[in-house]
Each structure stands twice: as structure tokens, then as C-alpha cells.
Amino acid sequence: MSISTEKMVSRKEIMKGKVLHVTVDTVRINDSDKLAVREAVWHFGACAILPVADDGRIILVRQYRYAATQPMLEVPAGKIEHNGESPDICAARELEEEAGVTAGEILPLGYVYTSPGFCNERIYLYLARQLHKGAQHLDDDEFMNIERYTPKEMEELIANNEIVDAKTIAAFEKSRRYLAGI
């Protein structure tokens, strides 16, 4: 059997929130009479930035994640604010808001989908270098600690399941060729 295509026939909106939109869609498979139901989560996307200081250490943030019910160690990241916002603008904004630094150089590393089986969220990945001190600008409901790790320490944290955040692992992996000491 070949890969199928699917076209929406009808949509029922379940929820429209600030961050995501949930629908139940009926789709037609391969222009045939076969129909299927797809539950989908729609999201504007996000950016995740691996900031590397001049000493080679990587800046991460630790924050409590409600849905995961635990604090997590992650790269600075945030959602694209509106449909059409440039991922590059989002990345620069989130880097300073969360990590308290700006970058002389921000390199795009591509993107990943978080859960393509039911969600269209695309996270654009970046490497930030030539960092300069800025100021954290956290939202009223955000609380996070800034931590620094060598690339080797990050490898160990990932191997030991102390970093389990997918965007952080993806950004680290896509940055490897730029990192010294691993």
C-alpha cells in the first residue's frame, strides 16, 4: 500500500485557546470513498535556542512544567506570538526573555515537529553565539532558574534522562558540529 493523502471534508471545532486550537476533522483518504476521523491540535509554532557562551558552556533554564508535573531542564524557548510572526524574531525575543542574554549571531538549525500524529506544532531550532548580557523578562506566571553546562555535561544529562525535553535534545543534536569538546 502506498502513502495516502487526506483531504478535510468537515471540521468540528472543540476548543480555541490562546496557545492552541483543537478540532475533530472528517477526512477523505486518497480521493476515495473512504472516510476517517482525525483529532488535531493546531499551533502557531515555537522557537528553541541553544545559547553557547564564549567559554563553551550552554545556557539552559529549569522550570516547572504543569502537564509533565515536574521541573524540566530546557533550552530557552517560546511560542510564536501570532500567525505570520517570523521565527527569527521569536527566537531573539525568547532568548533575552528567558535566558537574559542577546546574541551577536543566531544560526538557524532547521525545525522539528513535536507530535505530528495529532499536532502541527513546528519548533524552529537555533544556535546562539557571541552572547551579551541582557535582562530576563519573564511573564507574571513564569519562574525559572538559569543554569550552565558544558557540552559533555549535557550529553551525560541526556543519557541519564535528566534532560528529557525533546526540543532541547533536538537543538543539542543539531548543534553538535558547532560545539567544542564533544
Score class of each variant (00 low, 15 high):
residue 82 H to V: 04
residue 58 I to G: 04
residue 70 Q to H: 02
residue 29 I to M: 07
residue 62 R to M: 02
residue 24 V to M: 13
residue 82 H to I: 02
residue 70 Q to L: 09
residue 41 V to P: 08
residue 14 I to W: 01
residue 92 A to K: 11
residue 23 T to R: 09
residue 22 V to T: 10
residue 69 T to Y: 11
residue 47 C to V: 15
residue 6 E to N: 09
residue 36 A to I: 05
residue 17 G to T: 11
residue 55 D to M: 00
residue 60 L to E: 02
residue 40 A to R: 15
residue 31 D to A: 09
residue 89 I to L: 15
residue 77 A to P: 00
residue 59 I to Y: 05
residue 89 I to F: 15
residue 23 T to K: 08
residue 51 P to S: 04
residue 52 V to F: 07
residue 48 A to Q: 03
residue 82 H to P: 00
residue 44 F to K: 15
residue 73 L to H: 03
residue 67 A to F: 10
residue 64 Y to V: 04
residue 81 E to S: 14
residue 82 H to D: 02
residue 31 D to S: 12
residue 79 K to P: 14
residue 34 K to P: 02
residue 44 F to C: 14
residue 58 I to M: 09
residue 21 H to I: 08
residue 77 A to D: 06
residue 65 R to Q: 13
residue 18 K to I: 10
residue 11 R to D: 04
residue 60 L to W: 02
residue 54 D to P: 00
residue 26 T to R: 08
residue 70 Q to I: 08
residue 86 S to K: 10
residue 80 I to G: 06
residue 20 L to C: 15
residue 32 S to N: 01
residue 8 M to Q: 13
residue 56 G to I: 01
residue 66 Y to F: 12
residue 7 K to Q: 12
residue 37 V to A: 13
residue 63 Q to G: 11
residue 58 I to V: 10
residue 33 D to P: 00
residue 47 C to W: 01
residue 67 A to R: 07
residue 61 V to H: 09
residue 12 K to N: 13
residue 20 L to E: 15
residue 28 R to M: 13
residue 58 I to E: 06
residue 38 R to S: 06
residue 86 S to Q: 11
